[in-house]
Nucleic acid binder design. Structure first.
Lengths: 137, 137
DNA sequence: ATTGATGCAAATAATTTGCATGTAC
DNA sequence: GTACATGCAAATTATTTGCATCAAT
C-alpha cells in the first residue's frame, strides 16, 4: 500500500486514489488483465473507476514502464501486467485462456547479442508462450 | 508462386486468388504488416481485396498457424508476419516504428523446461524486442 | 491557487458480421 | 452443382477524446 505510493513517486507519477487502487490490483493479480477485468475487479471491491480513466492510467503506466501490454490471441483486447523486479512472462492456454506466470526470463543474453548485431538500444521486450494446459490438451 | 499454392494445400486451405496474393506479399515482406499495409501493398500492385476479406484470411492463416499476430506498442493495430521454417522475431524501434527481422529464436530450450515444469503442451510463442534504432536513440 | 486527473458522453478506429453474389473443387 | 469465399455495407467492440468538474501538491 504505502510502498505503492512510493513506487509511484519514484517514477514521477502523481499519486491519486485511482492509480493506487489499480496498482494494488495489478500487484495482487500476478496475472495479465484486460482493462475490463480491472474494472470488474474494482467493482467487486465496491470501487468504480471509469473505463476511460483506467485506459488513461494503463497508458501512463505503460509509458512510464511500470507495466507490459500485449494481446491475447483470438481476442483483440489489450492485456496488462505489472513489470516485476524479477521480471517474468506468461504462458497462456489457447483453449481455456488460463494463464500461468513463469519464473524468470530467458532473454537477457539474447538481448545483449542483438544489441551488438543491430546497434539498437534495446529497452524492453514482450514474450508470451502459448499452448494447452493439462486439462485442455 | 506455385510453391505458395502447394503450401496452402499442405495446410488444408482452399486456394483462392486472394489467399495466394496475400501469401505472396507476406512472404516477400520479411517484416510485420498491419491489415491496412497489406491492403495498400496490394493496391500498389493494382489489386483490390476488401478489408474484411483480408481480416478473414489473416484470421484463417492464424488459426492454421501460418502466421503470427502481435501488436505494436503505442498503436492498437494487429500486425502479422509469416512463420518461417527458421522462425524468427522482430525488433521494433519505439520512436520511428522501424522493424528489423532477427535471425533465429532463443526460446527452444526454455520452452522445453517450461513444458516440464507446467505440464502444458507449448505450441507457440510470441516475442518482440523493443528499443531505439541508431538514428533514434 | 494551479495544474493536472477524472468522469461522462460522444467520437473514432479497428475489426466483425449478414447477406447476396461469385468461385474453387 | 455444392459448399465455401468474397465484397459491400452495416454493426460491433475496444479505445480515445472534449469538456466540465474535482483533487493533489
Amino acid at each position: 500500500m504505502t510502498d505503492h505510493k512510493e513506487y509511484l513517486d519514484q517514477h514521477g507519477i502523481k499519486k491519486t486514489k485511482q492509480r493506487i487502487l489499480i496498482l494494488n490490483i495489478l500487484s495482487q493479480a500476478e496475472n495479465i488483465m484486460t482493462v475490463e477485468e480491472i474494472y470488474l475487479e474494482l467493482s467487486k471491491q465496491g470501487v468504480v473507476i471509469s473505463l476511460s480513466t483506467i485506459y488513461r492510467i494503463m497508458e501512463l503506466f505503460l509509458a512510464k514502464g511500470l507495466v507490459v501490454k500485449s494481446i491475447i490471441p483470438g481476442n483483440n483486447k489489450g492485456v496488462f501486467s505489472l513489470k516485476r523486479l524479477e521480471h517474468n512472462h506468461h504462458l497462456i492456454c489457447l483453449k481455456c485462456k488460463k494463464t500461468v506466470a513463469l519464473k524468470g526470463c530467458p532473454l537477457t543474453e539474447f538481448e545483449r547479442n542483438v544489441e551488438q548485431q543491430t546497434e539498437f538500444n534495446i529497452v524492453d521486450h514482450n514474450l508470451e508462450l502459448y499452448g494447452y494446459c493439462n486439462k485442455c490438451k
